[in-house]
Amino acid sequence: MSEGYQIRNQSAPHFLTFTVVDWVDVFTRKSCRDIVIESLKFCQKNKGMEIYGYVIMSNHIHMIIQSNDGNLSNLIKDFKSFVAKQILEEIESGGESRADWMLKRFEFAAQSNSRNSKYQFWRYGNHPEEVSSEKFLWTKLNYIHMNPVRAGIVNKASDYLYSSAANYVGGEGLIEFELPSNPIIDVLRKERFNFEIDEW
């Protein structure tokens, strides 16, 4: 974790980015995206994870989460470790046509650090930013939800299945969670970001 981006308040919500080593496009596979979704649900139910928003892109994940148990660092470690283990098993099982190439990249990355075993799946560091205000929260949520739009995957953020945009627009997404209250949502979304809610 780079200096200046550390989790100092373990109970506060943080904006985080988890990136696959070498930007390998692991999450183009539905099975790998589903592993992330199921892992988030498990952490919600069993590890005190509070979710405010997320998006799964082809090679990275953005999310805003909080630890109800007051130990966000351990929660992140457990989540990333489990997801990496499950996805590596999925790749090794033979369902991935690029398996040899991917595993060689992960193996090569692991050689650069003694903390690794055979493979390194995630890049080190999560670039954590503490959510210290409502304005910051909604700025980051808009950034998260617009990722697939900026990438040209969808025209409306809520059309992207593997993000929380649909939770905020229609109330239904792959993961259920309680939405944060926001009395100035219209001002932030319509004036600051210059797009209407129904364009999501």
Rank of each mutant, 00 (worst) to 15 (best):
S114D: 12
S132P: 06
F136H: 06
N142K: 11
S97I: 13
V83A: 00
F108Q: 10
K85I: 03
L103V: 05
F121I: 02
W101S: 14
E107Q: 09
A109Y: 12
P148W: 00
L103C: 03
K135R: 13
N147C: 04
M102K: 08
E92V: 08
D78N: 08
L141P: 07
Q111T: 13
E92D: 15
V131L: 08
R98N: 06
R98S: 04
E130W: 11
N116G: 11
E92Q: 08
K118W: 00
E96Q: 13
M146E: 11
K118T: 06
Q111M: 14
Q111S: 11
Q120N: 07
N147L: 06
L137D: 03
R150H: 08
L141I: 05
E134M: 08
E90N: 15
F106I: 01
S117C: 12
G95T: 09
E89M: 14
E129I: 09
F108Y: 13
E130P: 05
N147E: 07
N126L: 07
G95Q: 09
L103M: 05
V83M: 05
R123F: 08
S114M: 10
Q111W: 11
E90W: 05
G125N: 04
N142E: 10
F79R: 00
R123I: 09
D100K: 15
W101R: 13
D100C: 12
E90P: 01
F106G: 07
S97F: 12
Q120M: 08
A110F: 00
Y143F: 04
L141M: 02
G152A: 00
Y124K: 15
E89S: 14
I144S: 08
F106S: 04
R115Y: 09
R105W: 11
R150E: 00
E92F: 06
S132F: 01
Y124T: 11
G95I: 07
P128I: 01
Q120I: 01
W138D: 07
R115H: 13
L103A: 00
S93G: 09
I153S: 02
F106T: 04
S133A: 00
W122D: 02
W138L: 07
F79I: 10
N116Q: 13
E96I: 15
